[in-house]
Every structure is written in C-alpha cells, then in structure tokens.
Simulated scan of single mutants.
Amino acid sequence: MTQLIHTELVRLECKKWASEGINIKSEVRDSRNGYKAGALTAGMKHSYVEGCEFVVIFDADFQPEPDFLERTVPFLAHNSEIALVQAGWKYVNADECCMTRIQEMSLNYHFAVEQKSGSSIHGFFGFNGTAGVWRISALNEAGGWQDRTIVEDMDLAVRAHLNGWKFVFVDNIKVSNELPSSFRAYRYQQHRWSCGPANLFKKMAMEIIHKENVTLWKKAYLVYNFFFVRKIVVHIFTFVFYCLILPATVIFPEIEVPKWTTIYIPATITILNAIATPKSFYLILYWILFENVMAMHRSKGTLIGLLETSRVKEWVVTQKLGEYNTLRENLISHYSFPERLRWREIMVGMYLFICGYYDFVFGKTYLYVYLFLQSTAFFIVGVGYIGMSVPS
C-alpha cells in the first residue's frame, strides 16, 4: 500500500510539471528483477534516452537543490575525459539519535578519506549509487549496470575506471538525505555494503588482473588497496582482533600483542574521525564501541559475499521514516522484551565481560576497562536499545 501511495504521488507531481511545459516522465516496472541495477537498466531502454548525453541518479530519500545540474554538468561538458561527477551528502536527521550521529561520523570519514582524497589526486573512488551524474557514453562503454552483485554502483565505477575514464568528487555540493533511524534498517544496509563489495571482489579480481592496457599500479591499487584491504580485511580484522583475540590475551598472557595494533592505529583512525565531524567529538568513544559491534555484522556480510551463500544477493530496501513525518511518535513500536533480544550480540558481550572480569581479578593490566565498556555496547545492542524502534 505504501509503495502504491508513493507511486501515485510521484505520478501527480510529474503531471503537474508536465502541465507547465516541462519534459518529465514517471516510469514504473512490473517486477523487481535485478533490483536497482534492473530498474536503472530498464530506465535506460526508453526511447527518450537516445537524445540524452548525461543521466543523474538519486535515491528516493535524496533532496537535491534546484541548481544541482547547473553546478555538476559543467564538469562533464568541459572535460570529455570525465565520466562521473559525484556530489557529497548531508543528513536531515543526523541529530535524531546517537546511532544517526555515529553514522554521520563514519560517512563523513568515508567521504573525506576515500572520495575527496581520491578525486584530488585524479585517482579511483567508488560511485555511491546516488547524487551523481554519469556520462551515458562512458556508462554504455563500460557495459552498463549489471545485477551480478548487489553493488551495481561500485561494479560500474570499477569497469569505467579500467576503461580509462576519470571521476570527480565535488565536496561543496551536498545533497540532503536521511540516515536509517532503526538498527534493523541500518543492519540490512550494512549487510549490503559489506556483502556486495566482497562478492564483487570475488567476481572481478581476475578480470582486473587480466585487463589489457591497464597499468600494474592501477590493478594493484584496485585489487589490494580498494577491495582486499578496505572491503574485506578491515571488517574481519576489526571484529576478530578487538572482540575475540585481544580479550583472550588476558586469559592467555603468553599471547603478546604489539602496541601499534592496540594503541597507535586505533588512535590515528579515531583522530581522523573526530576531525571529519568535529561537532560530534564527544561521541568518539561511543563511535569506537559501536563500530566494533557493527564489525561483527560486516564480517558476516563479507564472508557471505566471499562464500556466496544464500543471502549473497539479498536486497532489503533501507527503511526511512521521513524528515517531516508528523506521525513519527505513533510509529514507535513497543516490542515485548524477548522480541528485542539479539543473541549473537549478547553472547559476544558475555565473552567480553567474562574476559574483563578475569582481568579485573587476576590480571596485571587495565584492559578490563575496555572490555567492560565493549561488552556493555554489545549488551545494549543485544537487547535492542539502540536507534529508533519502528514496525517492520
């Protein structure tokens, strides 16, 4: 019913603008085959696309400014080597709860470290799937959108980059959008964002290595740095090391862990995140603890992508509440306590708590401070007291 209402609202809005002489159309597919990649491919097959040079993509919750195209298209019009202009994001509900503030910190760090830095050195960065303008000729040359994974945006960007096309990230153009407010929605989103890249890595690694007329440096960067380190190792290492191995060192003191893995690298990453979102500096401890909890879900998604298990192509639309939803208070769901339990988080929390208690009683370090805090974070998520609780 909700989807039908949204479709009708879009149709009425398009009809209003068409009555004023604007060339605008609304198209709806009969199925979800291929998910977003299938929808984009179907959209590009319409006859009116033949006369177009560029295509702009927005997810449903994105709200671009009226001058968005005036500020982005000139990059493409004046440089024939550019295939994509990617705009930044800003969030209409960043202050809604602690979970949305933490998401803002992580995304600001992503834009600053991966996309802004990549663009500044004319290097590769992934397309975010929205708030971007593509040159249609570059899109078609790369083979268009493919539904072999659930990250059609990253897939297209890698293929276009291998064909020699350049991307531009414009930091001073930001498009308003909404962060997922419930942990359930955020968890599904993070599954897609971790499972998809890992699965794409499995499918494209050899394709990248054997691609002709591509420098060895570019191949090494894509395979090792972009995919292997950032999309696979980071997730698995964060959870396995900080939530499994490090706690075990208090029980097995013969396991020696170098300080650079426990202090220097985490401190550097923490400082970079604080710089990216200075207004949320006071939440940096919560960010560390929550990111370690999410590393468990991201690790699971990464392994699903690599092993191609049953959930490898699971696509659940990220639930958003809407910036101006006057019925938000009525949407709050009062689940009974047992329905909110997440046993994986609770079990990891128990493991951390036991290790912390052992260190507190028998240990000679202060690692129990971290272990008690991290176990508390797992317990909070485990009993559902994180984000907004909304109906399915």
Score class of each variant (00 low, 15 high):
Leu272Trp: 15
Leu272Cys: 13
Leu272Phe: 14
Leu272Met: 15
Asn273Gln: 15
Ala274Leu: 12
Ala274Pro: 11
Ile275Trp: 10
Ile275Met: 11
Ile275Tyr: 12
Pro278Asp: 06
Ser280Asn: 13
Phe281Thr: 15
Phe281Met: 09
Tyr282Asp: 04
Ile284Gln: 12
Ile284Ser: 07
Glu291Ile: 07
Asn292Pro: 05
Met294Trp: 05
Met296Tyr: 14
Arg298Trp: 15
Gly301Thr: 08
Gly301Cys: 01
Thr302Ile: 14
Leu303Pro: 01
Leu303His: 09
Leu303Phe: 15
Leu303Arg: 03
Ile304Leu: 04
Gly305Trp: 08
Leu306Pro: 12
Leu307Met: 10
Glu308Thr: 01
Glu308His: 12
Ser310Phe: 13
Arg311Ser: 07
Glu314Asn: 08
Glu314Trp: 09
Glu314His: 00
Trp315Asp: 11
Val316Asp: 03
Val316Trp: 07
Val316Asn: 09
Val317Phe: 04
Thr318Tyr: 02
Gln319Gly: 02
Gly322Tyr: 06
Glu323Gln: 14
Glu323Tyr: 13
Tyr324Asp: 03
Leu327Asp: 11
Leu327Lys: 14
Glu329Gln: 08
Asn330Leu: 11
Ser333Pro: 01
Tyr335Lys: 06
Pro338His: 09
Arg340Cys: 06
Arg340Asn: 06
Leu341Ile: 06
Arg342His: 08
Arg344Phe: 12
Arg344Met: 02
Arg344Leu: 09
Arg344Glu: 15
Glu345Ser: 09
Met350Arg: 07
Cys355Ser: 06
Cys355Pro: 09
Tyr358Gln: 10
Phe360Leu: 09
Val361His: 07
Val361Asp: 07
Phe362His: 05
Gly363Asn: 10
Gly363Ala: 09
Lys364Trp: 06
Tyr366Arg: 07
Tyr366Val: 14
Tyr366Ala: 03
Val369Ile: 14
Leu373Ile: 01
Thr376Gln: 03
Ala377Glu: 01
Phe379Asn: 04
Val381Tyr: 13
Gly382Glu: 02
Val383Arg: 03
Val383Lys: 03
